[in-house]
């Protein structure tokens, strides 16, 4: 178990959805900590509350009760614009359906995440190209989403998520729409981002292929955390093992 200071901390989160007779308690007192340099998987069956928890951790939804602390700051009582400001400063998102802008090319899709942060002009363009090269898309900079494969689109989405150097990357089913090869490639990329860039990565998934890349697996069922396990190092990927060892050595 790591002793690092958490970048994101959820304490006793309760979330009620719907009203009246249709009210559902999606989360029933969930607590979770995310630390830098770790890839955490949040796994659970459909309807278990995974995505609701991800939305709350990502400051998109507000909890009914409980507290979220992001980079040491409580989100309690913050309005939509303040939560948006926290998101753009601290969180990168990766979505199941990539959510790229079809009218923008790869560089522009990444630049827009910098643009909302106020980073414009040549430095933003250079940074967008840099992260696209990092994710192996240096040869696809000017391609539009409809000219990219699913795996390439997801890598553009990863580049967009990390372009502004957020401390947390939240991924919603990042491999669900990908074939096996691309799924592994994207997970390896997320693991590398966690290790090399010392970010905290949380991926919601029910894809067992992703297990080999995780430092930690949190299981959720019926709105409650039912289990948490740390993964043995390098189960499936020698590359990841090396990266993990390097990071732990550096932290020691």
């Amino acid at each position: 178990m790591t002793n690092e200071t958490p970048v994101l901390e959820a304490n006793d989160i309760v979330k009620e959805l719907g009203k009246g007779a249709g009210k559902v308690m999606a989360l029933k007192g969930v607590s979770l900590k995310l630390v830098p340099g770790e890839l955490t998987l949040l796994m659970g069956p459909s309807g278990s509350g995974k995505t609701t928890l991800l939305s709350i951790l990502g400051c998109i939804l507000s909890p009914t009760s409980g507290d979220i602390r992001l980079a040491g700051q409580s989100t309690l009582g913050l309005g939509p614009e303040q939560l948006a400001a926290l998101r753009r400063q601290h969180i990168g998102f990766i979505f199941q359906s990539y959510n790229l802008f079809p009218t923008l090319n790869a560089v522009e899709n990444v630049r827009i995440a910098l643009d909302v942060l106020g980073q414009k002009g040549y430095p933003a363009a250079a940074r967008a190209e840099e992260v696209l090269r990092e994710v192996g898309l240096g040869h696809r900079l000017q391609n539009f989403p409809n000219n990219l494969s699913g795996g390439e689109q997801q890598r553009v989405a990863v580049a967009r998520a990390i372009a502004a150097s957020p401390s947390i990357v939240l991924a919603d089913e990042p491999t669900a729409a990908l074939d096996s090869e691309n799924g592994h490639a994207v997970m390896a990329l997320l693991a590398r981002i966690a290790k090399e860039q010392n970010r905290s990565v949380l991926a919601v998934t029910h894809d067992p292929r992703t297990l080999g890349y995780a430092d930690r697996v949190v299981r959720i069922e019926d709105g409650k955390i039912v289990g948490e396990e740390r993964r043995p190092e390098g189960v499936n990927s020698p590359e990841i093992t090396d990266l993990t060892k390097k990071r732990r050595k550096a932290n020691a």
Binding site: A84, F95, I112, L117
Partner: peptide, 16 residues
Amino acid sequence: INEFATLRALGSSGSY
């Protein structure tokens, strides 16, 4: 609308 929702999720302000 989905693109605007994505922008919002990425942290863009309403005014953006």
